[in-house]
């Protein structure tokens, strides 16, 4: 980490040669080499980990995705695109892919709407209140996944706690079907991913100064205007960081959709899990993995455009 300037303007120096003649060109070339080495030095440990821990292990599955399922032998060695063709031409699977993305988006919007105000409160709170609120926000992550999921079933069931209370209070005449559908899964996933959204927002909101907001108020801007013109744009990076974590967490979850969905919600992840463990159809399961990967890469690239890291 010898050279750690954050402000190095690479775009300028990236142009080799230039009008300065041969000597300048040499200096520029040397600088470029140095920069290259610096990048290699900084990014190679993490790249190595990804190669060993992710790329090499997944190569086997990539190969597997071209094999053919065989009910007797698990799979037959082949080099065929059958699995991909089958999956990509089947309306059912395309629908599941679309629903998985929709689930991720729905959970992200849910956490944004629920989390933005509380993040704001935390960012503006006095220190002891702040600690308490932070602890509360972190709490969903502290309950074991399985325990938490069954906890939700107890709360949201037809004769669950929530329906019981609402019946007692006379708010409803008969139990609402709160469990076993898509929105139950959204609530369950939204609960556990809320901390990611809130904390991402808080760490950005902290940098908004009181003076800025006061200046807005003094200029006679309405609360709404201050929000849309000042606060929202400045917290955009936090929204970006939080949303990608929430989205990714949601689409790769499988315990929560499987249990809270009451068997009526399938995502690409639950299908993959079933194909790897129950039906032991590894070739199709593997192909599904790479379809999921491709689909998410597209989403992340779009997200990258939306939340461009501006210089």
């Amino acid at each position: 980490m010898a050279d750690a300037s954050l402000v190095q303007n690479d775009t300028e120096a990236d142009r080799p040669g230039g009008p300065g003649g041969a000597r300048d060109g040499e200096i520029a070339a040397a600088a470029q080499r140095r920069r290259l080495w610096r990048r290699v030095f900084q990014l190679s440990p993490i790249t190595l980990l990804y190669v060993v821990g992710l790329i090499l292990p997944y190569l086997y599955l990539l190969r597997m995705s071209f094999n053919i399922y065989d009910p007797m032998l698990v799979f037959r060695e082949a080099f065929a695109l059958d699995n991909y063709i089958k999956l990509l031409t089947d309306a059912f699977y395309l629908q599941i892919v679309a629903e998985t993305i929709w689930l991720g988006v729905a959970v992200t919007l849910f956490t944004l709407i629920v989390g933005y105000p509380i993040a704001w409160q935390i960012a503006r709170a006095k220190s002891h209140v702040k600690s308490l609120l932070l602890a509360a926000v972190l709490s969903p992550l502290l309950i074991n996944l399985v325990v938490r999921t069954y906890g939700w079933l107890a709360i949201l069931g037809d004769n669950g706690i929530l329906n019981g209370w609402m019946l007692d209070l006379g708010l409803i005449g008969s139990p609402l079907p709160l469990s076993n559908n898509f929105w139950t899964v959204v609530v369950g996933l939204g609960h556990v991913t809320l901390p990611f959204m809130v904390l991402s927002l808080v760490s950005v909101m902290e940098s908004l100064s009181d003076e800025l907001l006061e200046a807005g108020e003094n200029l006679g801007a309405s609360t709404f205007q201050i929000f849309t013109d000042v606060v929202w744009p400045l917290t955009w990076a936090g929204v970006g960081a939080g949303s990608i974590l929430v989205f990714c967490f949601s689409i790769s979850a499988f315990v929560t959709p499987a249990l809270l969905g009451g068997g009526h919600v399938s995502t690409v992840s639950t299908l993959i899990y079933e194909k790897f463990t129950f039906s032991v159809n590894w070739p199709v399961g593997s192909a599904l993995v790479f379809i999921l990967l491709a689909m998410n890469m597209v989403v992340i690239m779009i997200h990258g455009r939306l939340f461009r890291h501006e210089d």
Binding site: I46, Y50, L54, P57, Y58, L61, I244, L245, C248, F249, I251, S252, F254, V268, S269, I272, Y273, F276, G285, V289, L292, L293, N296, M297, I300
Partner: peptide, 12 residues
């Protein structure tokens, strides 16, 4: 670098 999060963790 985000890929570990978007690959199904069971399969990983």
């Amino acid at each position: 670098l985000m890929s570990p999060l978007i690959l199904p963790t069971v399969v990983t």
